[in-house]
Design a protein around this nucleic acid. Structure first.
Length: 554
RNA sequence: GCGCCUGUAGCUCAGUUGGAUAGAGCAACUGCCUUCUAAGCAGUGGGUCAGGGGUUCGAAUCCCUUCAGGCGCGCCA
C-alpha cells in the first residue's frame, strides 16, 4: 500500500530537514510537521527552528535560515519560506500535485490507505447489551463507534474480528424469564405475582404472547421452578433476535457472538480460575474465593466465587478475556459504557496476572447519552420499562443521521441527543451535506456520459489544467486524506474521518456552484471529471468506514 | 470522602497530541434556481477556551488548585 502522497512527503520533508539540522551539529531532534491552518503558510510546516533556538541560544529565524540554506532537494517544492517566529513552510509544486492526483485516480484505495496494522489481528467487542430488553440510544452510540472503529482498523490493514458478548448466564436473563412467566400466567387469567425488580417493559408481554401462540397454555399449571429453563431460554433468545434485528437495521454486523453460558459449559471458567490459582493470584477469605487485584494496581481485591458457591460476573469475565487473548489477538478492544469504567483496572490486572502485557487490552469508554426532546430530558426509567429505544430513534430521525451524530463527537464526551434538533436538522443535516456531494458527482458523470464523454479511466487527464484556486485547494485536501486516515487509525478515532469529510465536501459544494465540470472544452472537462472522481473515491472510502450510505441520488 | 470523564461562539461540537490571528454546523440577518440536483452557494455578526496559579521561546492542549455537571466506588449483573 501507499504512494508518494502527503504522508510520504512529510517523511521525505522530515529527512531533508533533519539532514540540514545535522549539519548544524544536532543529531537527536525530531522535526515535527503539520498541515498549517492557513493557506499562506504553505502545505507543510515545521517549527523545528523554534525548538532549536534554546539549544543554540540564537534567534529561531536565524536558525531557520541556516536550515533552509543547507537544504539541497528542492524539486518537489515550489517554495520554502520562513515565516512568523521561525516556522519553515513548504509549498509543493504543481507538477508534484498533478502526479499525485493522477495516482490517486488510478490506484484508488491502494493509494489513499495506509497499512498501519500489517495484518495484525485485533478484536473489537462492542454493544454486548444484556438480552433482557431492547437496545436504547446509548447502545446505539456504542454500536456506531464500535462498527466505525472496526471498519477503520480493517481499512488500516488490521485483521478485525467484531464480537458481541452475550450475557446469557446468570440472574438477569433468569429474571427476564420469570417476568415473562408472570405475564404469561396473567394473560391466561391465572393469578401470579410479578417478580420484585422484574422487567416491566411492554416487550415482556409481547414475548409472553409469543409463548402462548407457540405453546398455548401448556405451562399454566406449572410453577416457575419447573418452567424456568424454558422461559429463560425462550425469552432471552427472542430478545437477542430483536437486538440482532435492530442492529442489522442500523447497519451493524458482527463476526462472532460469544455466549457467556458456553464459557461455563466448556469449563473455561474453571480453567481460567485454575490458571490464576497456579499463578498464585487467588486466596480464600470468609468462605469466598478472591482475586488479588491489589497486587496489580486495582484498589480492591475482587471476589470470584461467593461464599454461597456461586460465581460472580467477574468470574466469567476472566474466562472471557483469557479466551480472547488465547485466540491470539495482538490487541483486544472492549467498548464499554462509561458507567463501567471502574472495571478497567481489575481486568487489566487479570490480563497481567495471566502473564500478558496489560496494554494488550484497550478499553474504549463511550460516554452517556442524554436524550432530549426540545431541550427537555426525556424521562427514562428502566425499572418501569419506560425508555426510548434505538429502534424508535432510527424510525424518527433515520439511521444515517443518528450515526453521524454519534460519529461527530469524541466518544469520551457526554452527548446530548435532542430528537427535535436531530429531526429539524434532517433537512439540513451535515450528513446529507456530505452525501449530497456524492449524489451531485454521480449526476455530473451521468451528464458527461450523455454528452458522449469517456469516463471509465480518467487517470490520463491533464491535471495541470486544474489551475483555479478552488481546484488547488481540493487537490491538496484530497492528498491530505492519507494523513488524516493514518492519524485516525493510530489514535483509534473514527470521528476524525467524519470531520475530514465535512471539510472536503465543504470545498466541493462551492466549487460545484461556481464552475461547470462538463463544458465544450473537452480537455478541461476531462481534468475536472478526474478531480470529481478523486473526490468520489475519497468520499466513498470515508463514508464506508463510518458505516454511512453513499446514495447516488437524493 | 476517593477515582474516572467533561467544561471552547446563543445551541451542538471539533481543535492534527505544545505552535502562527481559536474553527465548523445549527440558530439570526441579506441576496442567488432557464445551467452537471437549491439537502446547495455568496455575504454579515458572534469568544475572559469555567476561574486562578505554574512549567517555556510559545498553553484550549502539560502540572497544581478552586468551581460546575455526569458516572463509578457490592460476596449485584
Amino acid at each position: 500500500m501507499g504512494g508518494l502522497n502527503f504522508k510520504l512527503m512529510e517523511k521525505y520533508a522530515r529527512e531533508i530537514v533533519e539532514k540540514a539540522v545535522r549539519k548544524l551539529g544536532i543529531t537527536d531532534i525530531a522535526a515535527e510537521f503539520e498541515v498549517p491552518r492557513e493557506e499562506k503558510f504553505g502545505d507543510l510546516a515545521t517549527p523545528v527552528a523554534l525548538a532549536l533556538s534554546k539549544v543554540f541560544r540564537k534567534a529561531p529565524r536565524k536558525i531557520a535560515e541556516e536550515i533552509v540554506s543547507s537544504i539541497e532537494e528542492r524539486d518537489v517544492f515550489d517554495r520554502i519560506e520562513i515565516a512568523g517566529p521561525g516556522f519553515i513552510n513548504f509549498t509543493f509544486s504543481m507538477g508534484f500535485l498533478s502526479s499525485q492526483l493522477a495516482r490517486l485516480v488510478r490506484e484508488k484505495e491502494t493509494f489513499i490507505r495506509k497499512d498501519v496494522g500489517a495484518g495484525q489481528r485485533v478484536q473489537v467487542e462492542f454493544v454486548s447489551a444484556n438480552p433482557t430488553g431492547p437496545l436504547h440510544l446509548g447502545h446505539g452510540r456504542g454500536a456506531a463507534v464500535g462498527a466505525a472503529l472496526s471498519n477503520l482498523l480493517e481499512a488500516g490493514g488490521y485483521s478485525v474480528e467484531r464480537e458481541y458478548y452475550v450475557n446469557d448466564a446468570g440472574r438477569q436473563v433468569k429474571l427476564l424469564g420469570h417476568s415473562v412467566f408472570a405475564k404469561y400466567q396473567q394473560l391466561l387469567g391465572v393469578e401470579y405475582p410479578f417478580p420484585e425488580e422484574g422487567y416491566r417493559g411492554g416487550y415482556v408481554e409481547d414475548i409472553a404472547k409469543r409463548v402462548i401462540e407457540k405453546f398455548g397454555s401448556r405451562y399454566s399449571e406449572t410453577s416457575f421452578q419447573q418452567a424456568a429453563d424454558f422461559f429463560t431460554d425462550f425469552s432471552y433468545k427472542e430478545m437477542l433476535g430483536e437486538i440482532a434485528k435492530d442492529l442489522k437495521a442500523f447497519g451493524i454486523g458482527f463476526d462472532t457472538w460469544q455466549s457467556e453460558r458456553e464459557l461455563y459449559e466448556s469449563n473455561e471458567v474453571e480453567k481460567a480460575i485454575d490458571d490464576l490459582r497456579h499463578r498464585r493470584y487467588l486466596y480464600e477469605k470468609d468462605g469466598a474465593l478472591w482475586f488479588r487485584a491489589t497486587s496489580l494496581g486495582d484498589d480492591k481485591d475482587r471476589v470470584i466465587i461467593k461464599s454461597d458457591g456461586e460465581y460472580t460476573y467477574f468470574a466469567s469475565d476472566i474466562a472471557y478475556h483469557r479466551k480472547k487473548i488465547e485466540k491470539g489477538f495482538g490487541e483486544i478492544i472492549d467498548i464499554w459504557g462509561a458507567d463501567h469504567h471502574g472495571y478497567i483496572s481489575r481486568l487489566k490486572a487479570v490480563i497481567h496476572a495471566l502473564g500478558y502485557p496489560p496494554e494488550r487490552l484497550r478499553v474504549l469508554l463511550v460516554q452517556m447519552v442524554t436524550l432530549l426532546r426540545g431541550g427537555k430530558p426525556v424521562q427514562m426509567s428502566k425499572r418501569a420499562g419506560e425508555f426510548v429505544t434505538l429502534r424508535e430513534v432510527m424510525d424518527e430521525v433515520g439511521s444515517d443521521t443518528a450515526k453521524f451524530i454519534f460519529l461527530t463527537r469524541r466518544p469520551d464526551s457526554h452527548l446530548e441527543f435532542d430528537l427535535e434538533v436531530a429531526k429539524e436538522q434532517s433537512a439540513e443535516n451535515p450528513v446529507f451535506y456530505v452525501q449530497y456531494a456524492n449524489a451531485r458527482i454521480h449526476s455530473i458523470f451521468a451528464h458527461a456520459r450523455e454528452k458522449g464523454m469517456e469516463t471509465a479511466d480518467l487517470s490520463d487527464a491533464d491535471f495541470s489544467l486544474l489551475e483555479a484556486p478552488e481546484e488547488q485547494r481540493i487537490v491538496k485536501k484530497l492528498l491530505g486524506y492519507p494523513m488524516t486516515f493514518e492519524g485516525a487509525v493510530i489514535s483509534h478515532e473514527p470521528h476524525r474521518i467524519t470531520f475530514y469529510l465535512q471539510e472536503l465536501t465543504g470545498l466541493f459544494h462551492p466549487y460545484y456552484n461556481r464552475y461547470r465540470v462538463v463544458t465544450e472544452d473537452a480537455g478541461l472537462s476531462r481534468a475536472r471529471l478526474a478531480l470529481c472522481e478523486a473526490i468520489r473515491i475519497v468520499l466513498n472510502d470515508g463514508l464506508g468506514i463510518l458505516g454511512l450510505s453513499a446514495p447516488e441520488r437524493m
